[in-house]
Design a protein around this nucleic acid. Structure first.
Length: 884
RNA sequence: GCACGCUUAGCUCAGUUGGUUAGAGCACCUCGUUUACACCGAGGGGGUCGUGAGUUCGAGUCUCUCAGCGUGUACCA
């Protein structure tokens, strides 16, 4: 066995280790089968990487995602499953485009219009490629065992084909339609955004009460009021009984006299303001609905660039912010301003990406109809129903469960999905319009096609493609199967779909997860994209704030990887955080896991300095051996179960506990006396395998440097629990001896005042056979040279001894005990135990308990009682001995 | 407003279907520093599990109330 170097230096080895894995080809399940690592007919485990946006670099949240997924993937691969983890990146249409636009503005003071569509897209491609390369490199640094040979991009050729195929299928089924409706218009990005891309921010604004003929209306947006010629009130509102539905009223308004029409509608809240409002159907959803119900006129007031249109008369061309005050000034002059409140708190809608204030507008867009009935597998259904039933019928489990409720709540309020965007970067909508539509009736229909259309199929005339692009989530929605080659029925697609798991942040449950379910169930005839959704939380700073550049609290994963090692970072992101909950991250936490990697390394170092021969045999010679083997077996089965149920934190914690406090602190110490090399090596090798999914670098490094194995650790078989043949009472003996040792050490460490008294510690054991071994052990571990243990054959020394009689082990200590402190400890201990005894007795005396509680619980309590009583008796005996 | 969470040791959090005297890491205190490891070892203190009630033989765990915090979502002119 080769000796390990003094310290583990992750920076020196990580890149080489990753390269070795990559060169081995084992990230690719086909290679695993070819090389006999995996059986061809093995169960599959497939998962897609949520493709990071090509907008720059990875952040700590990505690092967490990669760590969690890699751990699960490595675990499954080692379990012998045919395991596939597909990498990729997302073109992230609007996010990427606005990033490039920003750079363009800063560096060249140009807009995308200055460059033109073609040239601009070239720039975006260069930027995206650059980001992509960074992201791939960073993913490798994290140790991700992704199958790079299958890498995909949401905007590459294959995915484009999938997108067009999906679009055409939906269009042909009338699930995609074109319609003029209210959209969320972002005047900065000059595009529509979906409901989910709108962020509401609280704002304090002015609220105006205006005289509108005989009514007083309230508004916070006077600039929209020009076109208001309908005044609406609740049909049951007695205050306005005298006014009839569709009654016309002449009144003085901003730019002179107008004729207003009274409308009665139940959407009006009688208690809000004056209970009367005027409506602006072009720029408000509720108003639009009212107008649609009563078949009223619409008129656009605000232009798409955020300035007022001709209808505003003298205010035309002014931006909203200026116009608002000017209009109020004029209304005030005319005596129409009744009252002004300046502490009106409301939410304003802003665009997620650009920060622009959303202006609702009516615009012709492409929509996906979520409520339209269609037939699937002989049953009538809708997209909404497909989304609901996937989770309701347990085709998909969401972890943690509470998000299932959130999911249903979202679907209940779901409206049609606006999928067209007025931006350039993305999948251009696969629809062409014939330029001769006016002349030829046949040519008025849009042409939807999966291939580019060069000329009109009816008249051979010129065609133009719809200039809009698709919402980025349209292509992401196809991700689980577009990455596997769909619409072609490839081997990959047939083998690996549905995928087993989707692991992603809860913040994109609606954006992405829900859309994937919608798309997959529709396109693949009810099939689900994945069987389990695991939602992780956000990674926050140590104070619980979001990490942001402006606060300066960003932890860059690459920096800390370099400083503490990738494994430490991975562990700190996985242990101590549970699905769905945000995790706080700090360098201190990473540091503590760096210490752990070092511990694992040093156990190996101890082994390599011991002149041990490598062997695969395991011989159990002592209770200590049996004990560690049995504890190992317990740990394996528990850890395996935890990982299978995606409780990674729990699994990691138990492994750490076993490694540190059981194996390193006890068994390795014991080995210094007993020298059973076979068990030591077996446990250590097993631990390396158990740890490998979590901390692949340090484990593989140790494996490579220490041992002379044929197989790399990454593809070794995951350990299975093993029954030990040792009897339970032998194991108990060891636990007992362990307790004695702890107790002796405790006394020595805690009590320092010299006294010439003796103390007896009585421990009950059932097995005396291995006492000689334990004698040395206690001696060594107590690290008190003077202590010896006396059995029937060994003589007593002058300062300390232990004696076995009547199945009891008496340990005598002398010379180092503070009697007063020891007395107090015993007294406290007795008092506490007596209290405990009382509570058990109370329970056992109650008939309800003995009758209704299960038998094993009752028996357990009886045992507890006996144990506690024994403890009191013995402690009292010690106390008496001390007092005399 | 509606929905969903969270509240357990000084801090960060575990606690699977209700069942021994509620756990870990960090921090703190004491002692130790020994050829695997000071990126160390041994030990200790510290919690009426947010409040109040209920169900139960038994509640950190289930139900309800209230309070504080957070997230999502809707919105009113």
């Amino acid at each position: 066995m080769k000796e390990l170097s003094k310290q583990y230096d992750p920076q020196k080895t990580e890149d080489d280790i990753y390269k070795m894995w990559e060169d081995s080809g084992f990230f690719n399940p086909d290679v695993c089968i070819e090389k006999g690592i995996t059986d061809a007919d093995a169960e599959t485990f497939s998962i897609v990487l949520p493709p990071p946006n090509v907008t720059g670099t990875l952040h700590i949240g990505h690092a967490a995602m990669l760590a969690i997924e890699d751990t699960i993937v490595r675990f499954n691969r080692m379990q012998g499953k045919r395991t596939l983890w597909i990498p990729g990146t997302d073109h992230a249409a609007i996010a990427t485009q606005s990033k490039v636009e920003k750079i363009l503005k800063e560096e060249e003071n140009k807009t995308r219009y200055d460059l033109g569509r073609k040239e601009f897209l070239k720039r975006v491609d260069v930027f995206a490629q650059d980001s992509h390369d960074t992201i791939v490199n960073q993913s490798k640094k994290m140790g991700s065992s992704l199958d790079w040979s299958r890498e995909a991009f949401t905007l590459d050729e294959k995915r484009s084909h999938a997108v067009r195929t999906a679009f055409k299928k939906m269009y042909d089924d009338n699930l995609i339609y074109q319609g003029a409706r209210i959209v969320n218009w972002d005047p900065i990005g000059k595009t529509t955004v979906s409901d989910d891309e709108v962020i509401y921010k609280e704002e304090v604004a002015k609220f105006y009460y205006l005289q509108y003929g005989p009514f007083v209306i309230g508004t916070s947006r006077p600039e929209t009021k020009f076109g208001d010629k309908y005044v609406v009130m609740h049909p049951d509102d007695d205050r306005y009984k005298e006014y009839k539905h569709e009654q016309e009223i002449e009144l003085e308004w901003i730019n002179g006299k107008i004729t207003a029409t009274v409308i009665k509608d139940e959407a009006i809240d009688m208690d809000f303001g004056s209970g009367v409002m005027t409506i602006t159907p072009w720029h408000d959803n509720t108003d639009f609905d009212i107008a649609t119900r009563h078949n009223l006129d619409y008129e656009q007031i605000i232009d798409f660039d955020g300035t007022l249109l001709e209808i505003a008369g003298e205010f035309a061309g002014q931006p909203i912010t200026d116009a608002r005050q000017n209009i109020i000034d004029k209304l005030d002059e005319k005596g129409l301003l009744v009252k002004l409140e300046d502490d009106y708190v409301h939410n304003i809608a802003t665009a997620e990406r650009t920060g622009g204030t959303i202006e609702p507008q009516i615009k012709k867009q492409w929509w996906i109809d979520v409520n339209k009935e269609f037939e699937q597998n002989g049953k009538k259904t809708t997209l909404k129903i497909l989304m609901q039933s996937a989770v309701r019928d347990n085709l998909i489990d969401i972890i943690p469960e509470q998000f299932e409720k959130t999911y249903f709540h979202w679907i209940d309020n779901l409206r049609d999905w606006c999928i067209s965007r007025q931006i350039w970067y993305g999948h251009q909508i696969p629809v062409w319009y014939c330029q001769n539509a006016d002349e030829n009736e046949k040519c008025t229909q849009p042409i939807v096609s999966t291939d580019d259309i060069i000329s009109c199929p009816h008249c051979d005339g010129e065609v133009k493609q719809d200039p809009d692009t698709l919402d980025t989530w349209f292509s992401s929605g196809l991700w689980t199967f577009s990455t596997l080659g769909w619409p072609e029925q490839t081997d990959d697609f047939l083998t690996y779909h549905s995928t087993n798991l989707l692991e992603t942040g809860y913040d994109i449950l609606f954006f992405w997860v829900a859309r994937m379910i919608l798309m997959t169930r529709y396109i693949l005839d009810g099939e689900v994209p994945f069987k389990t959704v695991y939602l992780h939380g956000l990674v926050r700073d140590e104070k619980g704030r979001k990490m942001s550049k402006s606060i300066g609290n960003v932890i860059n994963p690459m920096d800390v990887n370099k400083k503490y090692g990738t494994d430490a970072v991975r562990l700190s992101l996985m242990i101590g955080s549970t699905p769905g909950n945000d995790a706080k991250m700090s360098e201190k936490k990473i540091e503590s896991y760096r210490n752990f990697s070092n511990k694992l390394w040093n156990i190996g170092r101890y082994i390599t300095t011991q002149d041990i021969k490598e062997t695969s045999d395991v011989s159990i010679n002592s209770p200590a051996d049996a004990w560690i083997m049995s504890r190992l077996s317990q740990t394996i089965s528990s850890v395996t179960q935890h990982i299978e149920n995606y409780r990674l934190s729990q699994a990691g914690e138990e492994l750490r506990d076993f490694t540190w406090t059981t194996f390193a602190d006890w068994y390795v110490e014991i080995h210094k006396i007993e020298k059973n090399d076979t068990v030591l090596i077996h446990v250590y090798k097993t631990l390396l395998k158990l740890w490998h999914p979590f901390i692949p670098f340090v484990t593989e490094t140790i494996w490579q440097e220490m041992f002379d194995e044929d197989q790399i650790l990454m593809v070794t078989k995951y350990p299975a629990p093993q029954e030990t043949s040792m009897k339970e009472d032998v194991l108990n003996t060891f636990e007992t001896v362990k307790e004695i040792i702890t107790h002796i050490r405790n006394i020595r460490a805690t009590y320092t005042v010299p006294a010439n008294s003796e103390i007896n510690i009585t421990i009950i054991t059932q097995d005396v056979k291995n006492i000689t071994t334990q004698e040395n052990l206690i001696k060594k571990l107590a690290r008190v040279g003077k202590i010896t243990i006396q059995t029937e054959d060994t003589p007593q020394t002058e300062s300390a001894s232990a004696i076995f009689t009547d199945g009891k082990l008496y340990v005598h200590l002398s010379g180092i005990i503070d009697i007063e402190k020891e007395k107090k400890r015993l007294e406290d201990d007795i008092a506490q135990t007596e209290k405990y005894i009382k509570s058990i007795q109370g329970r056992l005396n109650s008939e309800q308990f003995t009758k209704k509680a299960p038998e094993n619980i009752v028996q357990q309590e009886r045992d507890n009682l006996i144990q506690a009583e024994t403890k009191v008796t013995e402690s009292s005996q010690h106390l008496e001995n001390l007092t005399n």
